[in-house]
Design a protein around this nucleic acid. Structure first.
Length: 832
DNA sequence: CTAGGGTTAG
């Protein structure tokens, strides 16, 4: 046998090119001049052997060269050699080319070669079908198979069926192919039967699969693996384990394939004991050196959150492939350690392993987790250069998600538009992206577009992305329509969807509906509990929240850190100081949860609002974490409520050391100055805000009338009923003033004249929405409005007056809680 | 000359 090195001159055509040029080109080369360069170069190579003289074209042993083939490029050159030597008529050699092109991923060349094979035999057809399968072109594979049946004399053989059945397993139907197996009398072949079993499992036809399997006269290990993996890929993990036990009872030992199939099942079922036992078996039977097995182990340990074990497996691998690196990177990414994920990516590069699409998926997620804004565009560029967006929707979705999570929602949208074949996840990612950036109406718009595109069906992920948007904007009617769709799709008992619905009803003021949904849901996890605790909290029913917490403990559900955030804020909204402090203790002592900044923020709010400003301040000073803007902001807010100027000043000084971006805090401080009559202070805050060129989160208020949502911004003049709204406001203002309302200009940060400040206050989005509600609903009926920010203090005061004048209940939900205005009083008590 | 069953995912 000649070795590969014998033909190494094939690689060296660059070195030979000058020598070639100096010579006379052969006739075969001249005829090839119009072909592409690699063909031409190959043609030259035929003329020149390593010593520069010997003519080789006639003696080339293609069979041997085929064996030394290593890349798609190499196949191309071999192809050229074949053409030049006039051997394209050989069915054997052309078939080999079809096969090789497919192996190296060049499916279009494979196809082209296949088409030109003059008299295709069954090998040729088989090579094409399996080539399609190898490259994931399943429907083409089936088409090709039928083409063989219909257009040629060639009949499929034992080798044809496993490939086409695998293709069917990834499509919709394989029963027609099965009937061909019968027609040709091939059903006794072990390979074919095993492929059939696997396919039927994947379709969920377990009965058919099992009967074929049981009828098999001889079952090799591969057949067992086929049925086990069939169950796994259908998500039927428990059945897979049953078959595995049966196999062991028959005394058949698991091989690396069985293990690699079963390990993901252990992860999926969260069965760490079985996982570890399998790992022991792996070590005992020497399978640990199989790359597939080791990779599966890394993935399993990562899913269990056992990073150290995953790392150990990775470290002990003698040979690592791309999947190994992807797995360890994903392990850290999924366990919230993006920095280590990025570190391993760099290490992977220094080991000269080329990343693939899935590497970039993990990387994109790591970048958004670590808020690494600068790397985000590099990720996008990397993906663009390789045209991966065109190849697979997953990477497009991942990059869209990354941009959205980093707040670059416009870039996310632009990229989203470029994804050629969007799937449901693409749409869900975009909807969630808008929602999480506070753009609920945009999220709803995108959902509308998704519904219009016929080839996309909403799934569980769609509900959990759109329902929060409805909740945020207060679109109860639209939300209820979606609830109807959820019922139809059978997702109503899904814990996450159900919790979103609880949140929707709770945030739209329908606590009863929220609770009856809650009692229908499975309540083993903390998720739905957290939602009901929180929504009673925002209504000011802290007592109910505490009762629910007790119920939760009685039902044996373990609270998590979010449970305590909800509880603490519920206590704070209801002034339940002692109970709040008790929760804070219990959280640490009984559940070992370390308080986060959000917990501390709630505590400061709780103490401060109840009047214990000194204690709140001392509490901040005793915190083991560095207080951030939200902590000082909570104290500042409490100082405003309590009218404590001195401490307020101190808090604001600290606040502006850590965060000077949030406009809300400037308003708060300005208001504190105004309350004690320090108007020069108000002016100073105003000019400070102007100097710093603050980014403003545009405030909006929404109102739902007649199944429609209207969203108002401050000074909005685009509403069709704009004139009537402003007229109503003018009338209200006059009445309010006669009842003693005095506008509080400290809520206007713009540096403008008095009358313009009043203008700004009167056109605050809250008031536009209320006025619109008044003119569009029958007298004395309640009005519900929803805000993205906290209600402005002046509006809070004004709404009290409006509730008296119009004799209406006005319910305002702001970003913090519900305010119930009736007869000039607000349910939040001494809040303002 | 070709073939079934395996690891990573938004």
């Amino acid at each position: 046998m000649e070795s590969v090195t014998e033909f190494s001159w094939l690689y060296d055509y660059n070195r030979l090119l000058p020598a070639c040029k100096a010579r006379q080109f052969s006739r075969s080369f001249r005829s090839l001049r119009h072909c592409n360069q690699s063909h031409a170069v190959a043609a030259q190579c035929i003329e020149i052997s390593p010593d520069g003289n010997e003519k080789r074209s006639k003696e080339i042993d293609f069979e041997v060269i085929f064996q030394s083939c290593t890349s798609a490029n190499f196949v191309k050159r071999l192809h050229a050699l074949l053409v030049v030597s006039g051997k394209t008529q050989s069915v054997y050699l052309s078939t080999k080319l079809v096969n090789l092109y497919a192996i190296y991923g060049d499916i279009s060349s494979s196809c082209g070669t296949f088409d030109r094979v003059p008299k295709k035999d069954v090998y040729t057809w088989n090579s094409m079908v399996s080539g399609y399968v190898r490259n994931g072109r399943f429907s083409d594979a089936v088409k090709c198979f039928y083409e063989m049946l219909m257009t040629s004399e060639v009949r499929p053989d034992f080798y044809s069926f496993p490939a086409v059945l695998k293709a069917c397993g990834n499509l919709v139907d394989g029963t027609r192919i099965h009937s061909w197996v019968f027609k040709l009398g091939l059903e006794c072949d072990v390979f074919i039967a095993a492929s059939l079993v696997h396919m039927y499992c994947r379709f969920g036809y377990f009965g058919v699969a099992l009967s074929i399997f049981n009828d098999m006269s001889f079952r090799d290990l591969g057949s067992w693996n086929a049925i086990i993996s069939g169950f796994c890929q259908n998500g039927n993990a428990t059945k897979a384990l049953d078959v595995l036990d049966e196999m062991r009872l028959e005394g058949i030992k698991m091989d690396s394939v069985t293990v690699a199939t079963i390990l993901p099942v252990c992860a999926q079922l969260d069965d760490s004991l079985r996982g570890v036992l399998v790992h022991l078996y792996v070590i005992k039977s020497g399978l640990e050196f199989d790359v597939f097995v080791a990779n599966a182990l890394i993935n399993m340990y990562a899913k269990f959150g056992k990073l150290a074990d995953a790392q150990l497996v990775f470290d002990q691998m003698a040979l690592r492939d791309l999947v190994s690196w992807n797995s360890i990177i994903a392990a850290y990414e999924q366990n919230n350690d993006p920095d280590s994920a990025l570190r391993f990516f760099r290490e992977m590069q220094s080991n000269n392993i080329q990343p693939d699409l899935l590497t970039l998926v993990s990387l994109a997620s790591s970048v958004s987790q670590s808020k690494n804004h600068r790397s985000s565009t590099s990720i996008h560029g990397f993906v663009l250069r390789r045209c991966w967006i065109m190849q697979d929707v997953i990477i497009g979705n991942a990059v869209v998600d990354m941009y959205a999570k980093l707040g670059y929602i416009d870039s996310a949208w632009k990229l989203f538009e470029d994804i050629p074949l969007k799937d449901a996840v693409s749409w869900n990612t975009m909807i969630t992206g808008y929602g999480q950036n506070g753009l609920a109406s945009e999220a709803i718009q995108v959902y509308g577009m998704m519904e219009e595109s016929k080839d996309i069906t909403a799934n569980q992920g769609t509900w959990v992305s759109i329902i929060p948007a409805y909740a945020h904007i207060g679109a109860l009617q639209q939300g209820m329509r979606t609830h109807g769709r959820v019922l139809k799709a059978g997702h109503n008992l899904d814990v996450f969807v159900g919790t979103c619905l609880i949140d929707l009803y709770g945030k739209c003021g329908r606590l009863d509906d929220a609770m009856s949904l809650f009692y229908e849901l499975p309540r083993k996890s903390s998720v739905p509990w957290n939602a009901v605790i929180a929504c009673h909290g925002i209504h000011g029913y802290g007592g109910t929240s505490l009762q629910l917490f007790t119920d939760m403990l009685e039902e044996g559900v373990k609270p998590d850190h979010i449970t305590f955030v909800s509880l603490l804020s519920a206590c704070s909204h209801s002034g339940l100081v002692d109970q709040g402090q008790w929760c804070f203790q219990v959280m640490q002592q009984e559940y070992g949860i370390k308080p986060s900044l959000r917990h501390y923020g709630c505590m400061v709010d709780l103490l401060g609002r109840a009047g214990y400003l000194e204690r709140a301040y001392n509490f901040i000073n005793s915190m083991p974490l560095k207080p951030d803007a939200s902590i000082w902001g909570a104290l500042l807010g409490a100082c405003r409520v309590q009218g404590n100027f001195e401490l307020g000043k101190l808090a604001s000084d600290r606040l502006f050391e850590v965060d000077s971006e949030n406009v809300g805090y400037y308003v708060l401080l300005s208001n504190i100055y105004a309350n004690v009559g320090k108007w020069d202070g108000v002016d100073r805050v105003r000019s400070l805000a102007r100097e710093r060129g603050l980014r403003k989160t545009p405030g909006w208020t929404s109102i739902e009338l007649n199944n429609r949502i209207d969203v108002f911004y401050t000074g909005n003049q685009f509403h069709p009923q704009c004139d009537e709204i402003y007229k109503e406001l003018e009338m209200l203002s006059a009445k309010m003033k006669s009842l003693g309302y005095i506008p509080d200009y400290s809520f206007v940060l713009q540096d403008v004249e008095e009358d313009e400040k009043e203008q700004i206050l009167t056109s605050h989005s809250e008031r536009l929405a209320i006025a619109y509600g008044i003119i569009s609903t029958p007298p004395k009926s309640p009005i519900r409005i929803f805000k993205n920010l906290r209600i402005c203090g002046d509006c809070h005061n004004a709404t009290k007056f409006i509730s008296t004048i119009t004799e209406r209940e006005i319910i305002v939900r702001d970003s913090n809680r519900f305010h119930h205005f009736k007869d000039g009083i607000c349910s939040c008590g001494d809040y303002w």
